[in-house]
């Protein structure tokens, strides 16, 4: 039943490695971009707030496939953006990271915003009264507490991100879903085995994230 796995025809580990990398780079990217977005959304500058709000509402409500395909067609094929990638595979990977970051950043932003709402406004006021700048108030007082309060929603965002990497197959990133499609075509007799393998692979990637974040949420909770 698992014979086709021994043939060496399918690089399962390699495909999941690409998935893991996609997830990791996009996670880092979207945490940074989401933090920047939430900073804009709470900033005292109306233009920044407007941009942050518009961006989040636009991108969050666009299907991920559209965002990813837009990166591929719009950026790469129309504007010739390669993000420094050399071949088709590399370009696809980088564009996928960009698209996933642009999309997931909005969810990180909203998770953080819910975290910010748990920080009593008086603390920001006290920080301002000490003479801190807006950036200092945000980075020293608000965000450290917001991150801790947002760990659980952030875990959900990261797990969703890991699964969303499968959409990158649409633009040719050689990740797990692309391989699965290929295997389903070639190994129709072992359909459920193939499904099982890929489901298991994703659980291996996401379960530790969930467990770790759950542990971290308890560990880092701010006592009030």
């Amino acid at each position: 039943m698992f014979d086709f796995l021994d043939s060496g025809q399918y690089d399962l580990l390699g495909a999941f490695w690409v998935t893991a990398q996609l997830a990791l780079y996009s996670a880092i990217g979207s945490l940074i971009w989401g933090t920047a977005l939430v900073a804009m959304r709470v900033s005292p500058v109306p233009l920044m707030r407007g941009f942050g709000t518009a961006y989040v509402n636009l991108v969050r409500n666009t299907p991920l496939t559209v965002v990813i395909v837009a990166c591929s067609f719009g950026l790469n094929q129309t504007l010739q953006v390669t993000l420094g990638g050399d071949d088709f595979e590399q370009i696809g990977f980088r564009l996928a990271v960009l698209g996933l970051t642009a999309y997931t950043g909005t969810f990180v932003c909203e998770a953080l915003r819910s975290g910010i709402n748990t920080v009593p406004a008086g603390q920001a006021e006290a920080a301002r009264a000490l003479g801190m700048s807006f950036t200092q108030v945000l980075t020293l007082v608000i965000l450290p507490q917001a991150f801790r309060a947002a760990i659980t929603p952030l875990a959900n965002v990261l797990i969703a991100l890991t699964k969303n990497t499968t959409v990158a197959a649409a633009i040719g990133a050689t990740e797990a879903a692309l391989l699965m499609k290929e295997m389903i075509e070639n190994e129709a007799q072992a359909l459920f085995t193939v499904f099982g393998i890929f489901a298991f692979g994703f659980i291996v990637l996401t379960l530790p994230t969930g467990l770790f974040m759950g542990w971290a949420a308890k560990r880092l909770a701010v006592k009030r």
Binding site: G122, A126, A127, M132
Partner: peptide, 24 residues
């Protein structure tokens, strides 16, 4: 608003009804 104001605020101590200590 700005750097000058921040400097001035640092010269004016403020104590609130609700303490507002940094909880983390």
């Amino acid at each position: 608003e700005g750097r000058e104001l921040a400097r001035l605020r640092s010269d004016v101590g403020m104590v609130f009804q609700s303490f507002n200590l940094f909880a983390h």
